[in-house]
């Protein structure tokens, strides 16, 4: 049976998720584009994941796994670790049974590339396609002249 609608991640869980998302999409080398965590996508990703309770529960378990691994290093929680140690813990978790589900990566990509700042960078308008749509220029049908000139190509039978 599917679990009910999940409760949102708490503040510490969202803070813990941010470096995970930055690992998926780090800042660009020139610093123009932010990492996914830096962009504040933890809340967006949480919201999307909550539509899929099973997946959300897996992510919560993985976040708990980060805290357990942090505790082995003497930290109260994952977010209390320095960035370098966080990276080590994330690598260790990724090799364990509590690794983050692959769909987290998919939804992180999805949330990143619908963010207005990222869309603007790539020249996309930051809006849904409807109801405005897009203008497309009329076709130059003289392009068909060589096709017409060749004549019929269907098989007569």
């Amino acid at each position: 049976m599917r679990p009910g609608k999940p409760t949102p991640l708490n503040d510490d869980e969202r803070r813990a998720l941010a470096p995970v998302l930055d690992g998926f999409i780090p800042p660009s080398d020139d610093g123009v584009l932010p990492g996914a965590g830096e962009l504040g996508l933890a809340a967006d990703v949480d919201e999307v994941l909550r539509r899929e309770p099973d997946l959300h529960a897996q992510v919560v378990r993985s976040l708990a796994g980060l805290d357990r691994l942090a505790a082995r290093r003497g930290a109260a929680r994952f977010t209390a670790l320095a960035a370098e140690q966080q990276a080590e813990v994330m690598t260790e978790l990724s090799c364990s049974e509590h690794a983050f589900p692959p769909l987290l990566l998919v939804y992180t990509f999805g949330c990143y590339y619908k963010h207005p700042r990222i869309l603007a960078h790539y020249g996309f308008e930051a809006r849904p396609p409807h109801p405005k749509g897009y203008e497309v220029a009329p076709t130059d049908l003289s392009l068909l002249d060589p096709v017409r000139g060749r004549g019929p190509i269907y098989r007569r039978c």
Partner: peptide, 10 residues
């Protein structure tokens, strides 16, 4: 008409 329109195909 939604901002997350592309995610719905998943």
């Amino acid at each position: 008409s939604r901002e997350d329109w592309e995610l719905s195909q998943i």
